[in-house]
């Protein structure tokens, strides 16, 4: 029997900086639950870091979700930094033109550094 795909979302908040750790699969099964949860967080924060290190798969439904997140972030004049995507995820972003508007850091440390620098700007 096949196992139902899942996505685990861990949310941390440190001094106004929201960090989201996504683990599992972002597809048509997991996207609806993830959308509600992440949209709520986007509406609270101006600075978000999304760690994709443990995201193993993203489908078109997941891409649509990221497009929606980026639009909402832009509308609020907020900033969302994605970090540590695996090769497969990065390739998917590339072929779907997402690299044209996504801000991607190679590691969580780099993303946090960028976020903190942005926060310290007057």
């Amino acid at each position: 029997m096949s196992k139902e795909p899942t996505i685990d979302i861990i949310h941390q908040e440190e001094d106004g900086l929201h960090i989201l750790h996504l683990a599992g699969r972002l597809d048509s099964v997991t996207s609806p639950a993830a959308e509600q949860r992440i949209v709520d967080i986007i509406e609270k924060g101006d600075l978000l870091v999304v760690n994709l290190k443990d995201l193993v798969f993203i489908s078109s439904a997941g891409l649509r979700l990221i497009l929606v997140f980026m639009k909402k972030t832009k509308k609020r004049n907020a900033r969302m930094i994605f970090c540590s995507p695996g090769d497969h995820i990065l390739k998917t972003f590339e072929v779907s033109n997402f690299l044209e508007f996504l801000e991607i850091a190679t590691s969580l440390e780099e993303a946090l550094l960028r976020a903190k620098q942005s926060k310290n700007k007057p």
């Binding site: 649509r64 033109n97 044209e100």
Partner: peptide, 19 residues
């Protein structure tokens, strides 16, 4: 094919407010 649609929406990312 779904990804083709999303790729086009991504290419025009700055032309609309929300999807």
């Amino acid at each position: 094919r779904q990804i083709v649609i999303l790729a086009e929406l991504a290419r025009h990312f700055h032309d609309y407010e929300e999807l």
